[in-house]
Design a protein around this nucleic acid. Structure first.
Lengths: 179, 179
DNA sequence: TGTCAATATGCAACTAATTGCATAATGTGA
DNA sequence: TCACATTATGCAATTAGTTGCATATTGACA
């Protein structure tokens, strides 16, 4: 369970509300960690009970309260402890491949159509990643050094998407031949 | 939820017990779907209640009963229905990247050590996949045509592992420099 | 002026997956 | 012959994640 540790990592850099964290997940960890707003709010509540994070309620009149969370020393320790521990290999569950595996039962044209839809999304994602990379490579070298490790996570996203697209080429070639 | 549909796809090809299915998951869907024995037994029970599969108890004296499941017409329909439906993009959650992202808080040497451990596993996996591919390519061409779609899922595994290893090269280069 | 997206939070119910335990036979190697 | 891996199944408790709903404001666009 590393949603907890992803949250700690984000709060380590900067405090923030649940919504802030949701946005930061999308913007910064999007290539390798996805969490819904429900997951985040529930997790924050739990982590607050465990004293891993502090909470300051910022009540604005005529607006819903904004709860700003920040990491506690215990939270920091927990994050360091987790960083020390080995990580289990990732569990892969890819429904699209299940479909392809059982594809004899459908028309090739239909599989092809679905693959093409997924390809569009992956192309779009890759384009976004390449845009972020371009920005990074254009930034001052001091900043580049600072962001070296997050940049490596972006590289994972880029290489992963490129591999996906190369695979899609193969799949489309085969499915086209099958008509 | 496609564990259900992965099970249906396997039972569509051939009936089998929970344990059989566990083995088939490992041998045939291992590159893209992983399920524990608990998940499988629970799922089979549920699917039997939903009439998607039949169950014949094969009671051997002095041995625990073997429950052999087979797909029903309803199960077949459900599988076809699912094949028709579009699949949601995959949710990626990769704890190793969370660690790398927060890596400033640890020694580079430790990250390096962990990456290398993961690399070993990925190299091993790739070698297995390449072995299976070699067998496939050496099989009679009639069989190759028969297994065209499952072969594409293997290709996904191969391209995915190769991309992972190429990324690991980059990561190791950076972490070594950081020493 | 009305609708819609974004900001901002959360409960309740449900489904899915993990963890730990438990049983019991067969075969294999030290 | 003792221990350990494999075959073969399952319950119970817990944790994690999803779905649907609910509220309330701000700003933009038409």
């Amino acid at each position: 369970m590393s949603l907890k540790h992803a949250v700690l990592a984000l709060l380590e850099a900067e405090e923030g509300s649940g919504y802030d964290l949701l946005k930061r997940f999308q913007a910064r960890l999007g290539y390798f960690w996805n969490a819904s707003h429900q997951q985040i709010y529930q997790q924050l509540k739990k982590m607050h009970q465990e004293r891993l994070i502090d909470c300051v309620v910022d009540s604005q009149p005529d607006k819903p309260d904004r709860k700003v969370y920040s990491i506690t020393p215990e939270g920091h320790d927990e994050l360091l402890r987790w960083l020390q521990q080995p990580i289990k290999p990732n569990k892969i569950n890819d429904a699209l491949l299940v479909k392809l595996y059982a594809g004899k039962l459908t028309q090739a044209s239909q599989l092809l159509a679905e693959i093409r839809q997924h390809r569009e999304r992956h192309e779009c994602t890759l384009a976004t990643f390449l845009g972020i990379e371009k920005e990074y490579l254009a930034s001052p070298s001091a900043e580049q050094v600072q962001l070296q490790l997050p940049y490596l996570t972006l590289r994972r996203g880029i290489l992963g998407e490129q591999a996906w697209l190369a695979w899609a080429d193969e799949v489309e070639a085969v499915l086209s031949r099958m008509g």
